[in-house]
Design a protein around this nucleic acid. Structure first.
Lengths: 181, 181
DNA sequence: GTCTATAGCTGGATAGAC
DNA sequence: GTCTATCCAGCTATAGAC
């Protein structure tokens, strides 16, 4: 899917990669759409857990931002969205999971608004999640195409806000305030 | 392309829509990629002109926003991007035109910064174009999937900023200040 | 579960007549 | 420019043997 797109994923090629006969693919997944659905669900469940860990970390916004700027993950997600645009059953499934991702983000960010002193009118949590998703997705997508104009300025803007809300970037194990032992 | 995706565009189907034989498609465009390239270029040139008109209007930001939230246009662009992800020649061409679109936006917005009293540090024109592109593209994409969570809040945020910078939405023919004749 | 065999379709692209 | 003819390849999916 990553190298040649969803349309290049055939039962023959999948079987060949697995060292099996193409008919076995149809034995496990009757249609190719069934295979895509199974693949998407497994990926989405793992992703939901990773996102939950990110949102529970010491710097939730930074962790979320790093998670959403992963190039390989974004590329595969875009491929699934392209597929979903033309298959109703897959579209329904993707929309369902995407709403779960977003709901978890909104819930986590809502509990941060007072801690961070965010005015709900200036930028409600729901809008913040859409903003972060949009920016990361489009920049990663454009990078994959070889574009770069405006990226540095936009990333600087994001970093500026992240810094204001969560301070410097700290490695995962580092406590927010130095502790003596 | 819109209904079934770029992978469903074949010389046979194109010819059939045109009431001709498939071989004629190969006569005019040796390969299918040549056909996609020609289609993309024609669309891009028209788009550049439309964008230029939008940026030269009385409310450039609003006009740009309306232009970039067109569902059909966005869907087709996303289809070309999906195609470009897997064909080098098409990727190069799309990146080239996308940079031209962006450059025109940045140039137009740069001349607006002082008129609108925008601080270049708060939001440089280059970042503003990336922001508007990102938000519109992702929201339109999500709407196509049937998602809606967070859209209202985000659109309200955009409208709020558009209003601050360019006032109310006025129909194209309406002058910014009432004029007597 | 894994295989062989097979039906039936769709596709890109070229050669050469007119 | 448009056609006929053609090659060769790829694909999904099912039936049925072992």
């Amino acid at each position: 899917m990553l190298e040649e797109g969803y349309a290049a994923v055939s039962s023959r090629r999948v079987a060949s990669k697995a060292g099996l006969k193409p008919q076995l693919v149809h034995y496990y997944f009757r249609t190719m759409d069934d295979l895509f659905l199974a693949l998407f669900r497994r990926r989405a469940e793992v992703g939901l857990q990773r996102q939950a860990r990110a949102l529970a970390s010491a710097q939730p916004l930074r962790a979320l931002w790093e998670y959403s700027t992963d190039p390989a993950g974004t590329a595969l997600t875009m491929e699934f969205i392209a597929l979903a645009s033309h298959r109703k059953t897959i579209r329904t499934e993707i929309a369902h999971y995407a709403e779960r991702f977003r709901a978890a983000q909104i819930e986590a960010l809502s509990s941060l608004t007072e801690r961070y002193g965010l005015h709900p009118d200036t930028c409600p949590p729901a809008a913040l999640t859409v903003l972060m998703t949009s920016i990361s997705r489009v920049i990663v997508m454009e990078q994959a195409l070889g574009m770069s104009t405006g990226h540095a300025e936009t990333l600087a803007l994001v970093e500026q806000h992240l810094h204001r809300l969560e301070g410097d970037l700290k490695p995962p194990g580092t406590p927010r305030t130095p502790q003596s032992h």
